[in-house]
Design a protein around this nucleic acid. Structure first.
Lengths: 192, 192, 192, 192
DNA sequence: GATGAATGAGTTTTCATTCAT
DNA sequence: TATGAATGAAAACTCATTCAT
């Protein structure tokens, strides 16, 4: 049915190679030629799909971020209770970060270094809108502390990135049980 | 009294320029020539003080990390109660990160990208030893949740970095009051 | 018939430029940029054909040495008498050194300075095997003095290099007749 | 008696360091800073004794060459018979090259690469005048073949350099007996 | 005389990007 | 669409030489 064009295959290979190489070496230490080689493509071919290196980074960022967001709100329903909804989203994000390590690491690199255009970065922020709305409701309902979304994010979602980095460095292993305990910490930090 | 040698002045200028430029562009996008220019020095002069670019990064990292640690434990006394001690350290770190933005941003870059030698990074980790010990005591005394130091760090210290980044991006301002509220979130997340 | 690729032409130009410039200035005093300029090529292009400067030197050495060897044993037949065979080889080598001055000078540089990898140098030594075998036979047959191949080489082949250098410096001219006389000196020095 | 000035000591150290380093790395791969370090002297000090790097090379060359020449004609007396005189000189030179390896190697480098000014090189050639005169006499007396001094040199003196290089590379050992046999080869090559 | 610090000019090498095919 | 070859511009780093002390 779905005929995936040869073009699409090549583009996908380029995106994948970019993620892999940037994760291991950083953006500026990743030459276009290596990306091309890993994608089994000529360097010149990259420029058929992307305007330049910066554009490649931006596009990959946007795509991975979109994938992340859609994952984050899987099975989430705005009709859920605040706690239930938050737990669902938190667990989704944690699962993504701990299981889709490559993509999560890439996002972490993008969010912590000046490799992405400010514009694209702003776009990326919008993706968490539903979570922000949930938080607003929680505050109105007197369930959550009256904290700005930035602070709420800092103490609940951002820590997962640290755990991912640590696990990826081999310093610890985050299993099901550890995840449950981490969730409690996250919830305790923001619940009233 | 203290005669600061001309050499020391030049070295300091180089360290400062490195921090500034790496913060703005990232390590690999910061050429030695620009560091030299900002420090009002010839590129060749850098190599009188540092073996190469990697060595420059490592040395600056170690120095800033040491500064950070000494700041983190200012006025801290292992004889304090767990909560009192934790608050002291947390506030120190937050103050450092929100006031000494340049240095904190630099550490954040170092900790989130592969720009520092693994060896130097390991050295840097040792600096938080007293905090880890405090946590161990807290767990024994039944005051803290039985979480690994990694998780405790992720939910109390790591979030501050996010707030710093956000504030630095101009998206929000963290004042005294916001800091107090953030501290509560940190403490709530780990206290039993 | 034989279509010589554009690549081959460029590589040849680089090899030729290397030989010329190294002969005139020495290896370390010959910058890649000058080699590129003489070959009408961008400096970066050199690195499409050679891994680095050392590799360039090694490859050129190996090629010229191979050319030298094949020239040295042209029309030589192991079935010849010792004297006949020796004369043939000696004359070949002399002709090469006095006529293919550029290539011979280059080999002389390589053999007298630490510019070539030890490995490549060892490879180069193997090329004279047939001459060494001829000498062994000559000693067994009681025609040659019982000297080690090193000494035999020193007094018969090595002197040609000196004549080449002198002629190249414009201090003398070695014509057909002078060559014959030189050959006699060479043969007299090792024959019993 | 002979008070060797501090200056002289320093200059000697510089000369010695130059010889050592040039032998091991070649002239252009030997930085002034390393010469200074090996001579326990500041780089700037070199310029008190030598105008520049080229001048340093030239002066060292001239001095070593002079030492070589004086060694070559030790105990030689123009009144000796041609053969006796030649043997004396040949043995002197061989002894120098095989025993004063450092200095001989240095001369070999100078004579085989473009590191010395043409002018200094010309100066160096003059040192062998007495040997050339001996040869002229030998030719007149019908003892030597009617060959130009260049050819005579090529087949008698120049080979010693090869043996020195080989011995220095550890490929063979030239003992007293081997030297005698080598001398015979040298003499046979030029005697009538 | 002696030097440590400093540097301008130059070295090797890399890489994002283009272009003829 | 796809590419291999080519390169200008710039990177990290070196070094002969100078100069204030």
């Amino acid at each position: 049915m779905k005929a995936i064009s040869k073009s699409q295959i090549k583009r996908d290979a380029l995106v994948k190679a970019t993620i892999c190489l940037v994760n291991n070496n950083g953006f500026h230490a990743t030459p276009m030629s290596k990306i091309a080689k890993m994608a089994n493509v000529s360097p010149a071919t990259i420029y058929l799909y992307f305007k330049n290196k910066q554009d490649l980074a931006n596009q990959v960022y946007m795509e991975v971020k979109a994938e992340f967001s859609s994952f984050a709100f899987k099975d989430y329903d705005p009709g859920m209770s605040v706690e239930e909804g938050f737990q669902k989203i938190w667990m989704n994000i944690a699962t993504f970060k701990l299981r889709e390590v490559d993509h999560a690491l890439f996002l972490s690199q993008c969010d912590n270094t000046p490799m992405i255009d400010e514009e694209s970065r702003q776009q990326g922020l919008k993706h968490l809108e539903p979570l922000v709305e949930l938080w607003e409701r929680g505050k109105k309902e007197g369930i959550l502390k009256p904290l700005s979304p930035f602070v709420l994010y800092a103490f609940t979602i951002y820590p997962i990135t640290f755990l991912m980095n640590i696990e990826n460095g081999g310093l610890c292993k985050v299993d099901e049980q550890a995840l449950e305990k981490a969730y409690v910490a996250a919830w305790d930090s923001i619940k009233l």
